[in-house]
Design a protein around this nucleic acid. Sequence first.
DNA 1: CCTGCTACCTGATGGC
DNA 2: TGCCATCAGGTAGCAG
Length: 276
Amino acid sequence: MPELPEVEAMARALWPLVAGQTIVRCRVIHPIAVRPNSGRGAANEAARIQKSVRGQKVRSVERRGKYLLLRLERGYLVLHFRLDGQLIWFDGRRTSGHIDVAFEMRRGTLGFVDQRHFGRVQWVRSPGDVPGVRAMGVEPLSKGFTGTRLAEMLRGSRRPLKLFLLDQSRIAGLGNIYSNEAMWLARLNPRRAANRLTEAETRRLHKAIVDVLGRALECCLHPAPDFRDPNWWFQGLGEILAVYGRAGEECRACGRRIRRIEQGGRSTFSCAHCQQ
DNA sequence: CCTGCTACCTGATGGC
DNA sequence: TGCCATCAGGTAGCAG
């Protein structure tokens, strides 16, 4: 489930493959992958994308939150991987396996793959035409993400800290994994109300978010994503995780059991002793 | 403005 | 062993 570090690494690894390449043809193989998230009547969406993208050069590859953006000469291809979405690169025009959308270029073919069909591919004039991108909050690895900024945002929310961290309109790119990890590193209880953190706790949280994402990004870049390998996925991430997915195992700080609770319908992992 | 709930999908998992 | 039910996850949109 790619979050900010994974998508950032994908964006960097993708650029050398598609830089300046012309999309000779776009094939929407599974139209569900281009269906808008809401509303129906999207029967022609596949045709629209195929037509809009054809013949355009890729000008840059960018990331916003967990979105991957391919800036074309006209408009943007906006990809979201949700849980299991992936990219695959084929050196020729032939593809194999389950491909939802294929972008054929001179040098090869880029495939968007998501068997569960949660992920989406969209073409828009401007990134802001995608509601999730328009509403995106501050990039946590940017200069704009300061302790002061975090404090302001925390003050404006009475939600449990965990749900605050998952809110993309406040901080961009944190998902279930890194929000859990950041709270453990900052030694904060996921159920604490966001606006009840002390100054010291806020500073700890700020540092934890930046540290966790920075470390994860380093991990995602070494080794770099290899889209040519259909079985490729990020390696070594499991080893840097302290709480996520470790219910019942020992806390790396105090040795007590990591527990799993549910918040907003999803799993939260924490150490009841370390995180107050 | 803020918050909380639900639909969306399907492979993996667990119970019997 | 096979079958069925449940779960997991991020986002958008809606209701309150």
